[in-house]
Nucleic acid binder design. Structure first.
Lengths: 222, 222
DNA sequence: AACGAAACATAACGCGTGTTATACAAAAGA
DNA sequence: TCTTTTGTATAACACGCGTTATGTTTCGTT
């Protein structure tokens, strides 16, 4: 056996390149040739590691999911369950260049879903995962006594997911982007108005004074 | 001057064909050849009426806007301003085959916005128009005394537009579509929770009994 | 040292696209 | 009737795409 090269590792490198390419130029910019060049190789090499475009997209998506999941799970495990919800929703916002890139990635997949059954299936899986995550976050907050017991979890998770999708759409596609501050305000308003939390949250600097583990990173600014 | 053919009229026919094509097969299915065939002609004829693909898309969009605007303005002029708001938002939902087609049309334009400056500009105009419409509807309802005076109109219109975009996204692209009933429930819940209307609305058949001009068409079902 | 398979590069194929060029048909004006 | 101009069809072009075919290098194995 010749040429010892860690197959799995190089594969990952190509997926990372595809991921970066889609974030930058959108899914239509992620051609075989472009991805290969981004990774520092040519199409011949890329083909050697993945046999079709659809497969490439699917695996690139799985690559990206691993990246995002890590951050979300960390936020989800915050002791303050109301704050955990808020921080995870914040993480989903297109609030900086990197996050907007991620959304560019998702939007691209949605487009492609209309054409490829494989991509459509994957998109569905990701969506279900995301809906489950938000539902779980809301349930956790409710079980912690931070939300009214009669909150309709299914409806609420659908609503906040829709709100975030819409925020991303407005920010990336409408030509009238929402500032990160405005995005967060919409999320905060949604939590306050829709979930009617039973206690104050979101440390307003001056007010605050809660016992729990606060100091939750206020993420990117503008 | 030869061959008397109403230039403007035939142009419209091509735009209508483009509109139908995008609704059915998405924007990637709306090729020069496909649109020409849909209209019953060949590319040669189509080119004679519009010189570039971007122009075709832009004009097809303007064609579709005229269609949708008519319905919306009718609903907007309902005497009951709270109901007017609700009905216009209902009209924007992907609740039947035709509306989903319309959303397919919009989503396609959003995709294309990433590539063409002309399309991007138009998308922006449409978005601003839609934001203004929702803001005006909310303001009208407030001025009619149906909403609290301190409602943040700008924020609210951003929120409901985002919610609807998200509903459309979930319905058309997530693989977990929302039923028309669920869509309307989300809208109703949003109005109730976010706008906190000062009176009951949405004639629940049994309750109702409001003086004003009711009987607002309950639009499409399932 | 010689072999051979894996890793990669280069180039071609087939297809569909927007666009352009060209040919023909038809009808109004001379 | 003949010309001229518009409407429409057909065909070609150049391009970029995913994919495939064919070299060429590299390096363990024997």
């Amino acid at each position: 056996m010749p040429k010892k090269v860690d197959h799995k590792l190089r594969r990952e490198a190509f997926m990372a390149a595809a991921y970066r390419m889609i974030k930058k130029r959108g899914i239509s910019g992620a051609t075989f040739r472009a991805v290969a060049k981004e990774a520092g190789y040519t199409t011949g090499a890329l083909v050697h590691y993945v046999d079709s475009m659809d497969k490439l997209l699917v695996e690139a998506s799985e690559f990206s999911a691993r990246e995002v999941r890590a951050d979300m799970e960390k936020a989800e495990n915050l002791p303050d369950k109301l704050e955990a919800l808020r921080q995870v929703l914040y993480l989903a916002l297109p609030s900086d260049e990197d996050k907007r890139g991620n959304w560019n990635f998702f939007l691209g997949f949605w487009e492609r879903s209309a054409l490829s059954a494989d991509v459509r299936h994957l998109t569905h899986l990701r969506y279900v995962e995301w809906l489950k995550r938000t539902a779980r976050l809301i349930r956790n907050a409710r079980n912690a006594g931070d939300l009214p017991k009669d909150v309709d979890i299914k409806k609420a998770s659908r609503a906040c997911v829709a709100l975030i999708d819409g925020i991303a759409t407005q920010t990336l596609r409408s030509g009238s982007p929402l500032t990160p501050k405005a995005q967060r305000e919409l999320i905060d308003a949604w939590i306050a108005l829709w979930l009617k939390p039973l206690r104050k949250f979101g440390a307003k600097r001056a007010t605050a004074r809660r016992g729990k583990g606060d100091g939750a990173a206020h993420a990117a600014h503008s």
